[in-house]
């Protein structure tokens, strides 16, 4: 079987397209590279969805935490504390058990004039349940970053906005928000990379891999268990993740350039260090 056939059979295995049976013996390097690569589709999916949705919730939470109104501030503070203070691993387990507890037949919601049945089964599947956990988790971390940036906005900028008659939404949209993003962006890049790395936890904690459709690490672990040789599959995962990280750094760097385009002395590429921790 040539490598091309393997690619055809297993290239989309992780999303249920192609050959159903995983290879059981005589593993080739090609099979490992293709299947693990197929698994990274999940990692990319989790990362993109969680980051896109999380960005908006994080902005809202950061504004809430910075709000003088205690009814907005306290819930935001507690949300951020809860998700930053506990391990993501435990959050996954907890969420899975929570979703399993939901009634099997869905929840009936009576709106008086019409009765709706909210389906809950899909929450126990990784594509939805794990995405929700990752979304909430990254929102909390990003909110803390945005909150710090919000407090670091130079007061001169805000005073100048006032002097020019900016108020309310226009002031937020034109002055506060872009400055906040500009200041937060390097740290937010780190968060994006960390979230991508955290997606590897999904199929190890709680959410079971359905029909062996797992992520990169799931297949790497499968090969390492079968061949008792960790020196091939794990480096393959590592290479995939380094590539994804480089892509994130590149993409976020472009955005960073855009955010800083008006700043003097920012013509050259801003030096972006690969993060080590969040």
């Amino acid at each position: 079987m040539s490598c091309w056939d393997t690619l055809m059979d297993y290239g989309l295995r992780s999303i249920g397209i192609g050959e159903r049976l995983l290879p059981r013996s005589d593993f080739t390097l090609c099979q490992q590279v293709v299947l693990i690569g197929s698994g990274t589709i999940w990692n990319i999916y989790f990362a993109i969805v969680a980051l896109l949705l999380g960005f908006f919730l994080a902005t809202a939470l950061a504004l809430g935490k910075a709000s003088p109104n205690a009814f907005l501030r306290k819930p935001s503070e507690w949300f951020i504390y809860l998700f930053r203070g506990s391990p993501l691993f435990i959050q996954f387990f907890f969420a899975y058990e929570l979703f399993v507890q939901l009634p099997r037949n869905g929840i009936d919601i009576n709106l008086g004039f019409v009765e709706l049945t909210a389906q809950t089964r899909w929450l126990t599947k990784a594509w939805a349940g794990a995405t929700i956990v990752l979304f909430l988790n990254t929102s909390a971390y990003a909110a803390e970053i945005f909150y710090g940036a919000l407090r670091a906005i130079p007061k001169g900028d805000l005073e100048a906005a006032d002097a020019y008659g900016f108020t309310g939404w226009a002031k937020f949209r034109r002055i506060t928000w872009p400055t906040m993003l500009r200041l937060a962006w390097p740290a937010y890049t780190n968060e994006a990379i960390f979230l991508t790395h955290a997606t590897t936890l999904v199929f190890f904690s709680g959410f079971p891999a359905w029909q062996q459709r797992g992520d990169a690490l799931y297949y790497a672990n499968y090969f390492a268990d079968k061949t008792f040789n960790p020196f091939v599959p794990y480096p393959i995962v590592a290479v995939y993740f380094i590539l994804i990280s480089l892509f994130i750094i590149w993409g976020f760097g472009r955005v960073n350039q855009h955010l800083n385009r008006h700043m003097p002395g920012q013509k050259r590429r801003t030096k972006m260090r690969v993060p080590l921790m969040r």
Binding site: I193, H197, A198, T200, L201, F204, L217, A220, N221, A224, F228, P230, Y234, V237, A238, F241, I242, S245, L246, V274, L276
Partner: peptide, 14 residues
């Protein structure tokens, strides 16, 4: 850098 720590955990033990 660039690699999820969990990969190292699973790799190093074995």
């Amino acid at each position: 850098r660039g690699v999820p720590d969990i990969v190292f955990f699973l790799f190093f033990v074995i």
